[in-house]
Amino acid sequence: MANIIKIKTPLTDDVVYQLKSGDSVLITGVMYTGRDAAHKRMIDALNRGEKLPFDIQGQIIYYVGPSPAKPGKPIGSAGPTTSYRMDAYAPTLIKLGLKGMVGKGWRAKEVIDACIKYKAIYFGATGGAGALIARSIKKAEIIAYEDLGPEAVRRIEVVDFPAIVINDVYGNDLYVKGVEQYKQI
């Protein structure tokens, strides 16, 4: 396996430039959760001239709708959801300063282009590994849209959250490269 790079949030351009498609990373710091419904609300808020529920500069959004926390645990199972459903909203957020997204599955060209233009990274996490990934989430707190239940925006504190760089700022795409390397038909 390639070297594992440890990174801290918020992400700076220096760190972002250093990351290459295929790098394994361990993320430590604060991330924000959001998926379909939360993204729609955030973009609606921007369209009305309102502010986002958190300062997005340098931040990472994790596409996840966790299961409920058992008593004494910060969060339930918390693996990534499929990212293409956020493609309609992501470029706007990247333009505003979002530096990273964690999810699973390929992104639209608009998102990949925005990553190159505004220097952001798309990370993949292992879908269906929600129980394992939850171990790296130490704290979770709902900061917006509580009525959305699992889809509410949460501020989470993570230590060594495992992910892999899919789309870097140089236009590389691990989903394309990886498949090319192993395909036999």
Binding site: I164, L174, Y182, I185
Partner: peptide, 12 residues
């Protein structure tokens, strides 16, 4: 043989 592999990162 498609090469998609676990989580689409490439593999058998």
């Amino acid at each position: 043989k498609l090469g998609i592999g676990p989580m689409g990162l490439g593999g058998r």
